[in-house]
Nucleic acid binder design. Structure first.
Lengths: 334, 334
DNA sequence: TCCCATTATGACAACGATTACCTACCTATG
DNA sequence: CATAGGTAGGTAATCGTTGTCATAATGGGA
């Protein structure tokens, strides 16, 4: 294929040195207007393009930030990445993404790979708690969603326990006392915290905890028909559902519509497309991916060009977005 | 910060040459087991990690593929990227993404940036038609969604016209003759093709085209209340809607639920979450992001390691996924 | 015994940019 | 007139790895 045009090629053409061309490229003052113009013309003529890799090697950093998420196809993380990318772009920095799919090995590989690449910084939604392999201050890093253990770092997250608590309180306020909780994998810290919030709300209201109402460790893509059927068949059945995340909520909405049980109140931890539009519409705890992304990338840039700050935790405030399913046993017709 | 461990550091520790260490690193046969073991031990002890940038400079390629999409936050592209990433990952290759947000300048910057970075390959969903700036065969590239003009390249896309045609035919088969079309920006090629398909289906069925039923160049995030109201108020109102893409469909579903008009049939070009679950559920033309992604990355790797094939067009087959709203004026209760 | 082939290893250049340092040259000032 | 200081530009080292080519040691066959 066509050979690359290098600085030296431009230098020869412009009858000057490689260094002067480099100066022009980097907008160094120390070049006379005349020379600058001549060099620039030649650059255009030859179609010169910097070699980013060579530059990165010399300068010691690759102008890219590495983002690690469980699943880029998940709209939550996709939006988060979009926000990160938008801000990074303003700084002339690219974004390289990797999905762990919940595999710890993969997560480690990704992070190691970013280090090997000398990325400018990292944003990580960790599954794995143990980040002790990362040397403190080795690389500007911001964690999202949950903090790693054994490593001091900036974290941007929502207050999961509080969010779950106000969600359940919302239901209690609307007269519900039999509230079932549908959660994904409890090994994931935020999910565990949400369960705590659920319990706390019930306890505060003096409602006795009923293990029969807790459906834990569900898979997001699992068929919940049987689970839900079971839930609705217990002696004193629930009048409201609380779900730990969007995928589960969607799954449940789907099933409920199928079995024509739209009389159950539902509050979802995440918001999701159409949650507001469907009948009955779903009350959610607003959990903005974009805001988390925005704060995370902002913090990351502070670390990158501001030097080292001491690690902080940033809690994104949560609130209930009430939407019609708060009230008890309202039969809504579509 | 801590100095990086280099090949030469390992070489010194293992009392051998830098080249031998490099051989061990790259699993070169030409190293005695004894030496290999000694070197490997030192690598571990010192915590050696390759410098990917230096390697890329030397080898001439960065083991990363560049993906350009209009909007990574769009679930369609997010899923596509997830699929691409999964396959790339198997090859030990990373994914760097950029969103154009419909800006041609940004699109060009992204592509140029990837070239400057010597990426292994590119997957591009182009907005801009003119890719003449790319030298033929300069870089393994696969286009998705639409072909660029002035550049011969592999393209993976769906047959937009055909998809729209079968969508409308589905409605016609179910007795509809007044079918409104809601479309996004017609300057985008696929959208224009879908309009062609809509027209073709009506023509084939001998139904006269009515401009009053065409609502074109809508913005995805626009409030469609007024538009829909207008649509339903014309003298001979539509009994069915056909939409050009998921965002618009979602928007419409939202409005229809709000105004309690669930008697209108709706067929959507894209599938979307909950399309199957809501009442009435929405018939869609299946347009799998994942499949497009999978085919695109597969083709890309064929180009990368297979050498140069002549550019081909890959059309992903489309089909109607019928879901309850085909029949005319069925009032569905939730 | 000698020579060629094979194996294990090493020295050195190259990839394309930036950085540290050096050299002219010109001007201003005592 | 001599010297200091500023300006424009150049030379060579460097970043960490891999490719080319050379070399030493070993073994087998003639």
């Amino acid at each position: 294929m066509n050979k690359r045009v290098r600085l030296i090629d431009v230098a020869e053409a412009a009858q000057t040195s490689i260094k002067t061309v480099s100066r022009v490229l980097n907008n160094d003052e120390r070049v006379s207007d005349e020379t600058r113009e001549r060099v620039q013309k030649k650059m255009n003529d030859l179609g010169y393009q910097v070699d980013i890799i060579a530059r990165s090697l010399r300068t010691g950093v690759d102008r890219v930030i590495g983002v690690v998420v469980p699943k880029i196809g998940d709209p939550f993380f996709a939006e988060l990445v979009e926000e990160v990318e938008a801000v990074a772009n303003e700084h002339g920095i690219g974004v390289i993404v990797g999905s762990t799919h919940g595999e710890l090995v993969r997560e480690n590989e990704l992070v190691q790979g970013f280090i090997q690449r000398r990325v400018t910084g990292m944003i990580i939604a960790p599954q794995d708690a143990d980040y002790s392999f990362l040397k403190q201050n080795q690389m500007p890093t911001v964690f999202i969603d949950r903090a790693p253990e054994k490593y001091k770092a900036d974290v941007v997250r929502v207050d999961d326990e509080y969010g779950a608590k106000i969600a359940v309180e919302h239901l209690i306020k609307n007269g519900h006392t039999r509230i079932a909780y549908f959660a994904d994998n409890l090994k994931v810290k935020p999910t565990a915290l949400r369960l705590d919030g659920y319990k706390a709300a019930l306890k505060d209201a003096g409602i006795k905890l009923d293990e029969e109402l807790q459906f834990l460790n569900l898979e997001a893509d699992m068929n919940l028909d049987v689970t839900i059927e079971k839930a609705l068949k217990i002696k004193n059945p629930p009048t409201a559902f609380f779900t730990s995340k969007a995928e589960i909520s969607i799954n449940i909405v789907s099933t409920m519509h199928k079995i024509k049980r739209t009389d159950i109140a539902l509050v979802s931890f995440d918001d999701f497309t159409l949650a507001a539009s469907i009948q009955p519409s779903i009350t959610v705890i607003d959990h903005s991916a974009r805001e988390i992304g925005r704060v995370a990338i902002k913090k990351l840039f502070e670390k990158i060009d501001g030097g080292d700050f001491k690690p902080q935790e940033h809690i994104i405030p949560l609130k209930v977005v009430p939407r019609g399913t708060g009230e008890i046993k309202v039969k809504v017709s579509a």
